[in-house]
Design a protein around this nucleic acid. Sequence first.
DNA 1: ATTGTATATCGCAAAAATACGATTAAAGGT
DNA 2: ACCTTTAATCGTATTTTTGCGATATACAAT
Lengths: 104, 104
Amino acid sequence: MAYTKRTEFSEDEMQLADIAKALSHPARIAILKVLSDGQCICGDIVDRLPLAQSTVSQHLKELKSAGLIKGEIDGPRVCYCLNEPVIGKARKHFNFLFTSFNCC
Amino acid sequence: MAYTKRTEFSEDEMQLADIAKALSHPARIAILKVLSDGQCICGDIVDRLPLAQSTVSQHLKELKSAGLIKGEIDGPRVCYCLNEPVIGKARKHFNFLFTSFNCC
DNA sequence: ATTGTATATCGCAAAAATACGATTAAAGGT
DNA sequence: ACCTTTAATCGTATTTTTGCGATATACAAT
């Protein structure tokens, strides 16, 4: 049986939900904040979060697959940074949604 | 063992994550959109979504506990509407987060 | 009082998310 | 060649979310 009916909704609704999902864990918000101070390597992020390296790596993967961040290999390290165009698009998307709401 | 380390993050990060979580399912986005056309009763929302009544009720509960909507009992029905102040606060919160991001 | 309508809650099953330790892979330095 | 460092992936445990049918509740109408 289908246990995710996500696909039964509009493209737009799913896109917004996907961005929201990427932001739905405080660790991922925290990661974005760290990166907003400037690009840095994975290890620095791990040091700043109260989570194990493997867990942080997983959160980074989710942010990356949502397109909110980019990772660039730099020798043995990986340098992460915000993906501005997508961030900007997300901002507009949310803003549009919220401002389209009129109350009762 | 602790399987939710949410509490180890800042108040601000958790608040934002909670709003995002409320928006992280297309059904809940769809519900908000329905309500943005004006207040309506639970049954109307159920009719507009591809989900069972009990499932919609659960999504409504989550939106309500996030403060994004209000439900008012009206005889045998419940009339739902957007909770404008909280929506506005959410909008500002997200906008602030996104605009605070500077890219690498 | 009985019936019907509307919605919430309960109980359950399946799926997805969270978290971590251990392992692997990839690169640099010695 | 060997070791160290860095980060991703794997395997696994636990928790949370999603979804539905069935039931309960609350109110209205007859």
